[in-house]
Design a protein around this nucleic acid. Structure first.
Lengths: 220, 220
DNA sequence: AGTATATCGATATATATTTATCGATATAAC
DNA sequence: GTTATATCGATAAATATATATCGATATACT
């Protein structure tokens, strides 16, 4: 949280929402959306907290960060809350995404339907291997990587997923940045080096699984 | 950190390493392993921090949590550090893992070779769909789910990956817990409810990607 | 040998996050 | 209408995490 001193008055900049909170918001949203239609129209932070096994104050604080529609004794109107969360998280305006690497993981992501409700639209995948190029058992196309630059620039696509072998990760990364990609999700164990204006997230499934395994072995 | 008072002396229980640190350790390890053979045998926390774009004190503190082999002016011996990290993270003793759901994602995980160097061995996948059962283009078998219980108990497997459609996630989860699984990695957007003695991790790829997208849109 | 320097580990400070407490308020029950 | 209660939001306290500072030490240089 940043504080600015201007003419004797402390102004609290409210923009910044911490990444921890940001990561929890989709969880609340997911739960709210899973509620049946005949559920009561209001829900309390206490209820949410109990179901999701979180602290009730935390839930209230998190929700307060994106909306202020809670009423004492009543709780939050579920419909409004879903709306606020979706708007805040940007799930309402669609964002186009491309995938580089049409191996097994790339194809799995390409045909995964669940992205849509997060405001994401996977447009196409790209690969160098001619044998995977085409459109077998997927509604979405797989192009040769040489077409990536043109497509991204024409459609103004700024988000890319890297699902190639670790050895080529950095080269692919550099290349797609040149093509206009500004945010990268990297499924490779290789830690990418990117310029400061590029956002890169790292998803190391093997490492996460190993951590789970360690946690298990520590449990007495 | 827990403090215990025993006969006037404060004993600090050193066991607990926070999850944030635990998540960073594989990053250090990955970097160290990526160093070429002809690199100098020692490395300083400063160097690691610069390459990985982290604070140097943080690196030092993280490493101090698992080892104490750093020497002033010299740094850490790379080989020893790798060894300590691998031992600490449990990458040295193999852990068996099973996958439930042999759809595209399940198959991708099944044939991913990268797990091995994290001390993980994917043993088999299970599904209900007879058309995927068998052994097409994978060195590892896909069995009918009815065989899961027997296999897990015979091999004493305690780690499971759920890669089924969200609708069946909870049912599968309950089932594999009955079969002896103690730690679960869930690739479904559905938030699993598990007993307190079961560890469940949640990997929501779509949500992570959406967060990346949000970060991008906020960048001014 | 003496000095300069890179680096460590430890301690201290700052920041962030979580959890607890409390008064205020909207509804429900009487 | 009054009282009881669930719930909110705000403030405060506790905890965790990150960053800064500093003395100690091992090497390199003179």
């Amino acid at each position: 949280m940043y504080y600015f001193f201007a003419e004797g008055v402390i102004i609290i900049e409210p923009k910044c929402i911490s990444r921890v909170i940001l990561k929890r918001l989709p969880i609340y949203l997911g739960y709210l959306k899973s509620l049946p239609n005949d559920a009561p129209p209001h829900i309390s932070a206490t209820t949410i907290a109990n179901v999701l096994q979180m602290g009730e104050v935390q839930v209230r604080k998190d929700l307060a960060a994106v909306c202020d529609i809670g009423k004492p004794k009543i709780g939050y109107k579920v419909r409004d809350l879903i709306d606020e969360l979706e708007t805040f998280l940007g799930f309402k305006d669609m964002n186009d995404v491309i995938i580089v690497g049409a191996g097994k993981l790339g194809k799995a992501l390409l045909s995964y339907e669940g992205f849509r409700e997060y405001g994401l639209s996977i447009v196409a995948a790209f690969d160098v291997d001619d044998t995977v190029i085409g459109n077998m058992n997927s509604t979405k196309p797989i192009y040769h990587i040489s077409k990536l630059s043109d497509l991204c620039q024409r459609m103004n696509i700024q988000i890319g997923i890297i699902a190639v072998p670790a050895e080529s990760a950095q080269a692919i990364c550099d290349y797609i940045i040149k093509c206009g990609i500004k945010a990268i999700m990297n499924f490779t164990p290789y830690l990418l080096k990117v310029p400061s204006d590029i956002i890169a997230h790292h998803v190391n499934i093997a490492a996460s699984l190993a951590l789970l395994s360690k946690q298990l072995s520590e449990q007495t």
